[in-house]
Computed example of a mutant assay.
Amino acid sequence: MPNDARLVLLDKDVVESLLLPDDVLEAVREAFVLHSHREGRVFPVVRESLATGGIFGIKSGDVPTQNLLGFKAAGFWPGNRGLGGEPHQATIVLIDPATGRPVCIVDGNAVTTMRTGAAGGLGLQQLARPDSSNVCVFGTGVQARVQLSFALRLMPTLEKVRYVTATSQPDPAFEALFSARCDTALARDRNASVAESDVVITATPGAAALFDLEAVQPGTHLNCVGADTKGKRELPDGLLQRVRLFVDDRTQASQIGEMQWAPDTPCMELGDLLTDHVQFKRGRDDITVFDMTGLALQDLTVARMLFDRACQANLGTALSWPW
């Protein structure tokens, strides 16, 4: 048995120093393409409530042709806010598929945030009207911010942002992040803001419908992030029956995404658009929804990129991990 095996740890500081938006976009696009070609597999998701009040999940998968195998253990612990910490927690583990030995452990918080933002940006590029200018964002937290950042990065036509908070009060920190790039202000009426928007981004804890069905106008695109567990939702009853629905993974979305509320809704996977396995020509009045539940392959391709960069730059902490 080899006694010189090493395990590399990439902590928060190392991850954030290496996590560049363009690199993440490339890795997330690769994950969608691998999934579309069925070269990458995603295994059944574990998502369970805990007695502590947290929600714990595992997303895992592999790419046999690339010797890529691993998982992300993650979830949501709302009590962390009272401790001054982030409620979303994630850890990614890359494993040698030939031996089962771990090769790298990655702090997954920033990875999860940015890969989800990148996925949302790719969804907008594929599905939103190219002349979209008005955005309505539900939420002002970490995920809402990264979704809007990628939206503005990839769709330069966007110029007006209206945001909705749970308290209906302004969020000066959120406005400060984006006011130099676009007209950013609190939405005084959530339904009116949805009706006036070309793009709607929902990035909330997903407790209930955020707006009325009648607010959604022809031509709108919606990126939906919050529904990632059984029982969670952000969209009103009846909307999915009116839209062209796109998902990251059909089975996963029907179990834990918005699609769980209408599991028989016809849908297409975003990766199939990127690989031209399916064709979609948006009609001017089409309403489109991208139901994002997050692919394990996205975590793995981004984590592998970070591992490779860290090794090249001699970053991270290497531990002896003998058999």
Rank of each mutant, 00 (worst) to 15 (best):
F174D: 07
D11W: 08
D171V: 05
G271C: 04
T204M: 04
L9D: 03
R115I: 02
L127F: 06
A73I: 14
D107N: 15
D212C: 12
R153Y: 03
L222G: 00
V278G: 10
T112R: 01
G54Y: 07
I256D: 05
P87I: 03
P64W: 02
S132C: 09
V164K: 00
D237Y: 06
P97Y: 00
P322K: 10
A208H: 12
Q147K: 09
V142C: 10
L273W: 02
V135T: 08
Y163R: 08
D212W: 09
D131M: 06
V15P: 07
Q143I: 15
V24W: 06
E48G: 11
L94T: 06
A209Q: 11
H221T: 01
P130L: 07
G70L: 06
V14T: 15
S132P: 02
L319R: 03
D272V: 06
E26H: 13
P78L: 00
R145C: 12
K72W: 00
D308T: 15
I201A: 02
G85R: 15
R29L: 11
A31D: 04
V24E: 08
K232Y: 08
L177D: 00
G85A: 14
G57P: 11
T204R: 01
V63W: 03
T202H: 00
T184E: 04
C136V: 12
H88I: 11
S49E: 15
M1G: 14
A128N: 07
A187P: 05
D237N: 13
M1R: 13
F290D: 03
A151P: 05
F307Y: 15
V161N: 01
G139E: 03
F76G: 09
V33F: 04
V106N: 01
R101N: 11
